[in-house]
């Protein structure tokens, strides 16, 4: 697990959330810049998921393996899922969904960190 990547994802995600909330209040639908933002976020998340999988292949095993894998699958799916939502809802509620997704992403990363290296 790459620590700086977790920090970066959390920062980018929260920034995205604020931006999308602003768009919601400005009555904008999801636009190309939002989509690019979600794309960048997704790449970062996939990088982190990849790093964790590599470490697991390399022999590092957390205690709650199943739990960790399900969390990894969830964070990998959240960015594309909220983008699809943005396509379906061509109103200000599209960015609202993306903002919600970007708010839960940092929380999920905190949980993954706890699962990966539990503080005893």
């Amino acid at each position: 697990m790459v620590d700086w990547l977790t920090m970066t994802i959390q920062m980018v995600s929260l920034a995205m959330a604020v931006w999308c909330l602003v768009s919601t209040f400005r009555d904008q639908p999801m636009l190309v810049p939002h989509l690019i933002g979600v794309g960048v976020l997704w790449l970062l998340v996939l990088g982190q998921v990849g790093a964790i999988i590599m470490a697991m292949v390399g022999g590092e095993r957390p205690e709650e393996m199943v739990m960790l894998v399900s969390y990894l699958a969830t964070i990998a799916l959240i960015p594309p899922a909220c983008a699809v939502w943005g396509f379906m809802e061509r109103s200000k509620w599209g960015p609202a969904v993306i903002a919600f997704a970007c708010l839960i992403l940092p929380v999920l990363l905190v949980r993954i960190e706890q699962l990966w290296s539990p503080v005893v």
Binding site: S70, T74, C82, W85, M88, E89, S91, W93, G94, A96, V97, F100, A101, I104
Partner: peptide, 21 residues
């Protein structure tokens, strides 16, 4: 299911997943 309903569906889906899993 349109407008705010879409956001509600998203939030409910996440909670469904979180609590059931």
């Amino acid at each position: 299911r349109t407008g705010p309903g879409r956001l509600l569906v998203a939030v409910y889906a996440v909670f469904a997943l979180a609590a059931t899993a």
